[in-house]
Amino acid sequence: MADDLSPARAARERRSRLLLLTPAMIILLLAASGPLLIVLIYSFLTPGDYGGVVWKFSWDAWFSVVAERDFFTDELSFADAHLSIFWRSVKLSLMTTVAALIFGFPTAYFIATRPKRSRDFWMLLIMIPFWTNLLIRTFAIMELIRAEGTVNMLLLWTGIIDEPIQMLFTEFSIMLGMVYVYLPLMILPIYASMERLDFSLVEAAYDLYATRWRVLRRVIFPLVRPGVIAGSILVFIPCLGAYVTPRVLGGGKNLMLGNLIELQFGQGRNWPLGAALSLSLLAIVMVALIFYVRAVGRDGEKAHG
């Protein structure tokens, strides 16, 4: 059929294909590549006195991402403040991912093993909070765990504790908030691969003397691994750049990367540093993504090659 096409018609086909591609290309150019380029350029400029940038090339921003110069003695040292925030972001994101996996995996398994009719209902329950405004959900968590909040009141009332536990404005509260917010992103991909899982394989393993734990480890887990990896990436990456949750639940003491970047563009009036920090965050995300692609690629090779 293809070689029946006249040259004019082939050209028309090519044009219409390009036309279809145009909106996506425009959005990518305007919303992704363009701003990214601006950020990259800004990170090599000098900060203006009242925010903004002065068009003078400088390495300073990149330099101060990891190091600082003592104001009086001119001595060089690691930028402890920045590094500890980097570390906290990665640590909290990893912990959140693990916690979301611990809660999300059994949930996905539970839903996937329900009768077909009730699965949609369970998935709806998972999705409803996801459709609620992020800020509202975060404040709800705050209401629950603040000193006079529901949890503390309940614990005091039942006599388990004598005085309120400080949960709000800790790393724990940030993690709790992020697990709550991103849990559906973990459950969805795991559920998707779990739903495709042939449960006669589970029976076969059980029939072949595998205990429940070994069935999970040797058969179920390897087969839903792509879902687990996808879910982990979907949780880990937005956690790294989380802004609202650490702002509301961390109380300004426990900054994460998102807050640090915002600070540079606001009160800090150091746009180049903000830009350099943003690109550093992007670099971490890239490393995580490369990790993901390689992990999934290995599965693909196994299945096909």
Binding site: S200, A204, L208, Y209
Partner: peptide
């Protein structure tokens, strides 16, 4: 998994993430 009884399933239910030899070895390893 404690019955000395094994099943050949209608759909075979071979483990897709294992080789032929690994499939056959599974019960013995367990």
């Amino acid at each position: 998994h404690k019955r000395p009884v094994n099943t050949v399933f209608q759909s075979y239910a071979l483990f897709p993430h294992m080789t032929v030899a690994q499939n056959i070895a599974f019960g013995l390893e367990m």
